[in-house]
Design a protein around this nucleic acid. Structure first.
Lengths: 227, 227
DNA sequence: GTCTATACTAAGATAGAC
DNA sequence: GTCTATCTTAGTATAGAC
């Protein structure tokens, strides 16, 4: 985004604008392909074909496959951050995580968020051949994950009564871990098209009830003389 | 490891026995490698090197990489079935699933069970390039998963009061799905070596309490006039 | 900046001697 | 049944014309 002299040019724009558009096309093509085929499964040739740009152009914009995916993760992380700026209770979080990611609630579904969840699986250390130890994509993802985890904890803290938090300071962290585990777990299920199709909305509700019950337990303990 | 002489049959055994031993060596090497590197990440060359047998022998015993992994899954499924023959309550199941798989409780940890959990992730449909649609490994895994799911449901049914089951017949299934999601989710965490190391035993306990709370809810509803 | 043609490499698989 | 040498393919990446 250096020169912005947007003279006339309806559809085409400046050379810079055209380049930017190409870059975005590549990124969006990679997003779709990555959701469908994963990291290893997404070939640069496929990105080229799907974006409509020749492979040379892809390598002009991104110097390697790793760099392309780092850029893709950054794109998704940015989208995630914007999406998660308002308040969000435990129940809504689980609903978005379980029913949204599974695609059961299209309202809550964004490809960017789904890709971040997919990346969690790619990043399984040493696993999958996908993202090996010294892979920049993995490193970038782990950085973002720490960041997103912090945001999650803060937002979950808001939805736990203040006195309970005071009595059990690490409860929000634990709830965050549990809800993350649940969403990750359902993500695995949702994308495994195993047996009967599940009613994810109902499971989101059950999961929320289960965690809320846990909070109630701690609240009771906080109200009593404490354990 | 040359063949040399067939002196005392004690350790060496017949030619058949030697062949069987080779086959097992290959499977065990593949098990370790697969846990470490996943499906894509495990190369036939590595299996050959790690097992001590040349690649030609590996292909003599298993006609393809896919067949090798199908055999490996069968080996693990057999181990799983033996392991899960006795009774096992919800709490113990979650402990095994969360603390065991993470390695936090070595007592509960078996490589075979861990591999099956890893395979759940590999099987993410269309994902990872690992196990594509028409992959025999994936098909074999999905068959086993259905089987194991049934066993899980039956065993969880036993740990829910009979009257509650009668009132809410699909509750055991739902609990099974939730506990599967939790264990899958924690498996992802445990193998992502992200931020702070978690106390999986404690999380196993929290998860158990959360689900037990859910059961209590249904029990109360069953006791009352019902929802 | 865009594109075609091609070099390089890793990995699955096979042939055939022993 | 075991092993070495080799074939084949697919996928990342680059060179260089336009």
């Amino acid at each position: 985004m250096t020169r912005s002299t947007r003279q006339g040019e309806g559809t085409k724009g400046t050379r810079q604008a055209r380049s930017d558009r190409s870059r975005e096309q590549i990124l969006l093509a990679a997003l779709d392909l990555a959701l469908e085929h994963g990291y290893q499964g997404t070939t640069m040739a496929a990105v080229s074909a799907s974006s409509g740009l020749p492979i040379g152009s892809v390598y002009w914009h991104f110097k390697s496959k790793e760099q392309l995916f780092v850029a893709l993760l950054e794109h998704c992380h940015k989208a995630w951050t914007e999406l998660h700026s308002g308040p969000e209770g435990l129940r809504r979080k689980l609903h978005r995580g379980i029913a949204g990611l599974s695609g059961a609630d299209p309202e809550q579904y964004t490809k960017e968020e789904a890709l971040l969840k997919a990346a969690a699986v790619w990043a399984l250390s040493r696993q999958l051949g996908g993202l090996g130890e010294d892979n920049e994509v993995r490193a970038a993802y782990l950085r973002m994950r720490v960041e997103m985890f912090k945001v999650d904890v803060e937002r979950i803290t808001e939805s736990v009564p203040a006195d309970v938090v005071e009595r059990f300071p690490d409860l929000p962290t634990k709830l965050t871990v549990l809800s993350l585990a649940l969403t990750d777990g359902f993500y695995v299920h949702a994308n495994s098209d195993v047996h009967l199709e599940l009613d994810f909305a109902e499971y989101a509700d059950m999961a929320a009830r289960a965690l809320e019950g846990l909070v109630d337990d701690y609240a009771r303990r906080a109200a009593g003389k404490g354990q």
